[in-house]
Nucleic acid binder design. Sequence first.
DNA 1: AGAGAAGCAAAACAACTGTTTCAAAATATG
DNA 2: CATATTTTGAAACAGTTGTTTTGCTTCTCT
Lengths: 298, 298
Amino acid sequence: MGLHADLREKLISDYAKLSPQMQKAARHILDHPNDVALRSMRSLARAADVPPSTVTRLMTAIGVDTWQQFRDHYQNRLLDLPASYANRARETQNVSQDVDRDQHLLESIARTEIDNIDKAFGAELRGRTIDACVAIENARQVFVVGRGAAYPAAYQFAYAYRLFRDNVVLVDGRSGAFGDQLRGINRRDVMIAIGARPYIRDTVRAVEYACSQHCPVIAICDSDVAPIALDAMIKLIVSDKSQSFFQSFTAAVSLVQAIVALLVARGGQKALERIASAEEQLAAFDTYVEDPSPTRNS
Amino acid sequence: MGLHADLREKLISDYAKLSPQMQKAARHILDHPNDVALRSMRSLARAADVPPSTVTRLMTAIGVDTWQQFRDHYQNRLLDLPASYANRARETQNVSQDVDRDQHLLESIARTEIDNIDKAFGAELRGRTIDACVAIENARQVFVVGRGAAYPAAYQFAYAYRLFRDNVVLVDGRSGAFGDQLRGINRRDVMIAIGARPYIRDTVRAVEYACSQHCPVIAICDSDVAPIALDAMIKLIVSDKSQSFFQSFTAAVSLVQAIVALLVARGGQKALERIASAEEQLAAFDTYVEDPSPTRNS
DNA sequence: AGAGAAGCAAAACAACTGTTTCAAAATATG
DNA sequence: CATATTTTGAAACAGTTGTTTTGCTTCTCT
């Protein structure tokens, strides 16, 4: 069956030997194989931010005579994919039942996750999400609280938000006690509290303290009657349904990202400039490995 | 939002009213739908033995403005993307822009996120996800690396995994240098590295070190040729496409959760017992507030 | 029969395709 | 440092794309 070796493999194995621009092109092809099948070479080149000639050169570099050949390969791949799906199902049945069971579990997890996100961006929540943005924009200081499984979401928000604003405190209880980090919180601030059952005491206490200081709270949680939601000004209820023993904070992470995206969109040019300068700073600190190829897909 | 439900249906229902030559064209399209997606209009016309103008006329006859629209529809059908996602952007372009820009942004974020997760649980990746589980099960020690925006995913995994197994190290560079945490890593261990462009130097270095010690690597990243994927044993490619400046690690978080869920499912009774005891321990530490309102969703 | 309409294909069209050429820019080599 | 080599993007190219126009044929109806 090794009539023509898999072009994708070829692309990966030769990747290191390619010139930077060709790598950029190769990378885009690897990341967006369907573009090869469906779009034109020039438009793919545009999407990869590379002149058309680079793509042609890449073809000769990997030993393909013409773009047509390359495209044909990917078109066939696309047409065969549904078939191989069925084959895989048959294979897995032969191999063992366990694998089949695992596949099904993964499938059902995917469905649940998508469902959760779908709900998180439902009509009712969209309005409240915008309200939350307004509250954050007007706040003097933004405190983010999330412990345990909710910590990733809290961290995510603080990390992204800090790229264009510096008035955020991630209350992680690591650097000093809770009390230290919440010192001075007042009605002009806002607290974003993230959590789901079982509710972690620390988070609840942080919310209670914020409320006692008349600081408005945005609660991202699993229920209108969650302890952290009871006194919240804005309640963003996300589903944490999951197939496993472990609650899923995917929707919360997603929602938190969306809030940041909204804040940036509403912040306009100024926000973008701040982000640019933050990224410059990171680059100056030698944080990233050089890989200066932006993968824009139109 | 109810644009023409399905062009194929339209073609069939209008078939009788078409002129003979148009019927010939329509018939070919119905019999060879993939030709629409993959070939050019003229070449399809040749295959149908019809002049190109007939195809154009057919388009107007069934109420489609341009061949491009028609082709887009069939391309998306081929990709079996749920109806109207990213590629569909052109069709859904005619929307009121200024009234509820925020609402639309949220909607489009939701679509992208769902799309990302959908891909993360696609057919190709499911197999590799199971492979990753096997590797993790057999590992002496599991090292998880993820910096910056990828940290939430790494944390998520470590946190959930620790509930039923204690052989995980979250390499966060916080407690001591990287070197300390990776000390003793060898071929019997496994490293889970999470990252996307721009690749953070620390993560890349950690992977390089792991490889130098012959420790297999499971890379969760955005490309087959990402620096952390190049030498990885298992590559789990997740899309980090996002509407904002900020890459989305939602799919990575989701995938990581799925891996844990799978590990538990495969671990059987023993894993469940460990989780139970971990939760008891947490309860004993008074971590959670007692929650008198059992909001179980059936 | 012949006026009018409808169907049709060939030609014309501008825009875009994949490829090659060539000189400048970047990089390596001495 | 200058030189040789590679890498790169703009321009040029012939061919193809989707669409429109044009004029010819075929059918229909009094």
